[in-house]
Design a protein around this nucleic acid. Structure first.
Lengths: 371, 371
DNA sequence: TTGAAAGCGCTAACAG
DNA sequence: CTGTTAGCGCTTTCAA
């Protein structure tokens, strides 16, 4: 039973005009302003060609009566709700496993702002399409984060004729309207080159055993880079949705006989995981071990040492996804490219710069400007 | 102009039955099943007393036709949308300044789950009530995070007769339906006692210059604790929405002539801010400086040393807020307490435990179970 | 037990 | 330039 389904209509008084307490409707405004309801509607929506005086008068009366147009009625009439769904496909069992908090928070924040700026609001929805709630909310379109291959949510939405834009290149033949993603291969290759240039001889990888596109592409890129350079791959795999598993895998990686002298961690917490593991083995960063991880978290600017991160630019992605979706909803610019690649950014910090200023001494306090 | 406002009705064909492409409506199902639309409605909603055979048959036909009830029509008819607003009041100019990412993410996640479990979905809305979008979405009620004194959003919503539940005790006479909060005073007092018990002689505070309830209550509690203990307050203040300012203020605090030997930081990033500042001044944590900060972030389990944190239990808060709101919407249990206090949790780690095992040696790898 | 009919509040044709 | 009218698709009395 959905929320809306279990309610009774409560208004019992039938003589509309007679009721004094229920919220003012468009006809009340019309009556009070001495015009027709059409005029009220037009005046309030800036439609039609009314004299400014009428428009002002109607608006004034509406204001005085505290009139609020019914969103439901407008939606029913126009077929547009101004609502956009936002779903993040989950790995584990939990309804909402946001493994990458910072990424999601940033992305969602940007998406929300972008939607709001164009007059839309975001509705957070579960990743399971069978949930009642999907049937009970009028959406104009949906944003899907990291859809899995043959994602049932996406399939169902598309079948209903709703535009769907995904954050993350859809695997397989998922029929999304558009998608936005980074060039993960290029990002990984660039980052490995950066590590090699900093003196890394054997670069290790901390990666996930999940099948999502991000993990797959990044891992593949690593393997092909190793092949090209002629280095044996050194990597450990773990389920990305398990926070503890990351620390353990980091430890395993540094415990190997063929211990790498540089590591890239695919997931947000890997930086601290690896740093902790390095400490346990007495490895100094960056002197004995170079470190990079993919993260949006600002904490890596303040760790000891600060850790180089790869940013996927979630804000730009969130914005782009929403723009694409709303364009599709409004039928704007049909022949705009339906795929958009957002560049990543490697934020180089101490952890990936071998042997520069010793940095073991106390450095002077930062001034705000330096950030 | 709102999103829904600027759209035309696109369906031009008037003969409903004649149209073959537009989505199946309830009358199509009725016709195909050879029953009336009333029967279809009842069968699908589990209302009325129909023979099971009819019910099954109707459901089958509806399925075959891919029938999806119109949420807009249902909302218009029943007056309930199954939608709950979620707003976070912002400090600065940005439409969405989530200073406490982890807190918000956790709270929102819990709220979303709780809402979903009861058949509702969450709509993220801006903190400015004058935004068009507020007028364009049919809400059953709203959750407001950290409403400011005389918050215009809350005032307007309540005027419309919508239930409003706030995360954070409302300041002044804000007429919310219910609120949920921690006992911030008790939390701070307990934490200061903990620091004192660990040997702190002069405890400093890193706090915000904003007027929100959380900051105000926490600061007041600190000051009264100092008074009770007979310690001179040592604190630095900064605008909590500026990420850089925190680092600077942390630095200022440790640069003071009356440098504290323990510090409590009110905001999430303060832990790393203070740790970095301590490092710059060559202060060892916890030997020279005890540290606690209020945070939901898991990174403090992995810093060197791990930092003691105060958790506000955002998940429990998010859940409670939604339960209270939905209870109010559905008119359940009218005489339930409209205020609910969620206990905080002090997660004690190395940074607030003076002089135990030296911990300068390499410790063995953690096993997953230890977490 | 089922069906016909009356709207929910609004917008957009189409008259006047 | 303004008003009348016909629904949007559904739920719910109320009568058959």
């Amino acid at each position: 039973m959905t929320a809306a389904g279990k309610h009774q209509v409560s208004r019992t008084d039938t003589s509309r005009r007679g009721s004094r307490q229920s919220r003012a409707g468009i006809r009340d405004v019309a009556a009070a302003a001495g015009v027709s309801i059409t005029t009220v509607s037009d005046a309030l929506n800036g439609k039609g060609r009314l004299p400014d005086a009428t428009r002002r008068h109607v608006r004034e009366v509406a204001d005085r009566l505290g009139y609020r147009p019914s969103a439901a009625a407008r939606t029913l009439r126009t077929g547009k709700s101004g609502l956009i769904g936002l779903t993040v496909t989950t790995y584990g069992d939990e309804p909402f496993t946001f493994t990458e908090f910072a990424y999601f928070a940033e992305m969602a924040r940007a998406a929300t702002s972008a939607a709001l700026a164009r007059g839309y609001a975001l509705v957070i929805l579960p990743a399971t399409s069978r949930h009642d709630v999907w049937q009970n909310v009028a959406l104009d379109g949906t944003v899907v984060i990291d859809p899995s291959d043959h994602d049932p949510v996406v399939t169902e939405l598309v079948r209903q004729g709703l535009p769907v834009v995904s954050d993350g290149r859809p695997a397989g033949t998922l029929p999304v309207t558009a998608w936005v993603d980074n060039d993960h291969e290029a990002a990984v290759l660039g980052l490995l080159d950066h590590l090699a240039a900093a003196g890394a001889r054997r670069i290790g990888l901390l990666t996930g055993n999940t099948t999502d596109t991000y993990t797959r592409l990044s891992t593949t890129a690593y393997l092909s880079w190793c092949e090209r350079i002629g280095q044996d791959p050194v990597y450990e795999t773990y389920p990305a949705h398990d926070p503890c598993a990351g620390a353990v895998a980091a430890d395993r990686l540094l415990a190997r006989p063929d211990r790498p002298d540089a590591v890239y961690g695919l997931f947000d917490p890997n930086g601290t995981d690896l740093l902790a593991a390095a400490r346990r083995y007495g490895l100094r960063v960056p002197d004995d071990l170079l470190l990079v991880c993919c993260s949006e978290s600002t904490v890596y600017a303040a760790t000891e040492p600060p850790i180089t991160t790869l940013s996927l630019k979630p804000r730009r992605i969130g914005t782009a996804v929403v723009q694409l979706l709303i364009d599709a909803i409004e039928g704007i610019d049909e022949n705009r490219p339906v795929e958009q690649v957002i560049p990543t950014e490697l934020i180089v910090r101490t952890s990936s710069q071998r042997r520069r200023s010793p940095r073991t001494k106390v450095s002077p306090p930062r001034s705000p400007a330096q950030d």
